[in-house]
């Protein structure tokens, strides 16, 4: 039974010569789910640059605008995709994004210097993830409820801390350049985090354990994997990323805004991960896929703005894209079961 379709067997390069090009592409698409989203992203970029407003799409300034959408979505999606792979989700990430800059200013306003305030703010961000993870694992409460509660809590805390007023970031000089001040620093942060997390997923035990914890928690536990440690770590990473990009993104803007981020930011990050091929029920997904998901959404957002499409239409497109991506995911899983054996 095993040899019926050897040419489609994963990693069976020796038989590649028997494979036609179209068949090779087909099986590559089945094997690498994120490949389909890369193709769609390229298609979207080609479409918008070929349009009548293409001359304004293909400019460095416009790439910079796309980056401003892309970087926070991609960075938070890097954490969310690890959580989704573990079978969890963090609905509070967008509120962590809004809250942590004000944690920084409150430490700073109490007389601490900027680097120390920054370190403490980052530690608070990780603490938020730790609390999310511990409530999830120790009390066995679903992450949906846990992080929903955390999201409301943080939203309220953000308004209390800020007095519902925007504040000027206290960060200046070289540190500000690193943290969003330099034009492309956000992009560097996004790419660095994506690369590190993809390596962690593909080439470390943490990645294998995350997939095992989300794919079959019972088997993982029977094999001696500390499933809860893996999950809590992923919550901590997600909150860390959300807090960090909250600071960076708003240093770039030049203002800490209590109304920034929120559920919109979180939904875009989760949508990026899902469009990038991460299964909501855990077990599989990639960080690179989430990055392309974020890039696709950023390009569509920007392209719609340039072409004068109603802003509301963007949400319609995202809605359709998320559902279509999930359907595609399910269908590809079906095809994989059928052909990749």
């Amino acid at each position: 039974m095993a040899q019926e379709t050897p040419q489609l067997v994963r990693g069976d390069e020796q038989r590649g010569s028997r494979t036609s090009v179209s068949r090779g592409l087909g099986s590559a698409l089945l094997r690498r789910r994120e490949l389909s989203i890369v193709l769609v992203t390229i298609a979207a970029a080609v479409y918008f640059s070929a349009g009548s407003y293409g001359s304004s799409f293909d400019t460095t300034n416009n790439y910079h605008i796309i980056m401003q959408y892309f970087a926070p979505w991609a960075i938070i999606a890097a954490g969310e995709s690890m959580l989704l792979i573990c079978g969890e989700i963090d609905l509070s990430a967008g509120f962590t994004y809004a809250f942590i800059p004000f944690v920084l200013t409150s430490f700073y306003n109490q007389g601490l210097d900027v680097p120390l305030s920054l370190v403490l703010a980052i530690l608070v961000a990780m603490g938020i993830g730790l609390v999310n993870g511990l409530i999830r694992t120790v009390f066995n409460l679903s992450s949906f409820i846990t992080t929903l509660g955390m999201g409301f809590f943080l939203e309220g805390m953000t308004y209390i801390q800020s007095g519902a007023e925007p504040q000027n970031p206290p960060i200046t000089g070289g540190l500000a350049d690193v943290l969003g001040g330099w034009r492309w620093s956000e992009l560097v942060w996004a790419l660095a985090i994506i690369v590190i997390m993809q390596i962690a997923l593909s080439y470390t035990k943490y990645g294998v354990y995350a997939q095992a914890a989300g794919g079959n928690p019972l088997s993982a536990a029977e094999s001696g994997i500390k499933v809860n440690v893996v999950k809590v770590s992923s919550f901590v990473l997600t909150s860390l990323f959300a807090g960090l990009i909250g600071i960076i993104d708003q240093v770039r803007v030049g203002s800490f805004d209590p109304t920034s981020g929120g559920s919109q930011m979180m939904f875009m990050a989760v949508a990026s991960a899902v469009i990038g091929g991460t299964a909501l029920l855990g077990g599989s997904g990639t960080v690179i896929g989430a990055m392309f998901g974020a890039l696709l959404l950023a390009i569509i957002q920007n392209g719609f703005t340039l072409s004068g499409v109603n802003a509301y239409a963007f949400d319609v497109v995202i809605g359709v894209a998320v559902v279509a991506a999930m359907l595609l995911n399910v269908y590809i899983s079906y095809l994989r079961r059928k052909y990749l054996r």
């Binding site: 994963r10 294998v208 354990y209 997939q211 095992a212 989300g214 794919g215 079959n216 019972l218 088997s219 993982a220 029977e222 094999s223 001696g224 994997i225 077990g283 599989s284």
Partner: peptide, 17 residues
């Protein structure tokens, strides 16, 4: 129940943990 993880390839199941 075999304690296998469906989503992982054979060799990673073989060396799980």
């Amino acid at each position: 129940d075999l304690a296998l993880v469906d989503e992982l390839p054979v060799y990673l199941n073989f060396f799980l943990n």
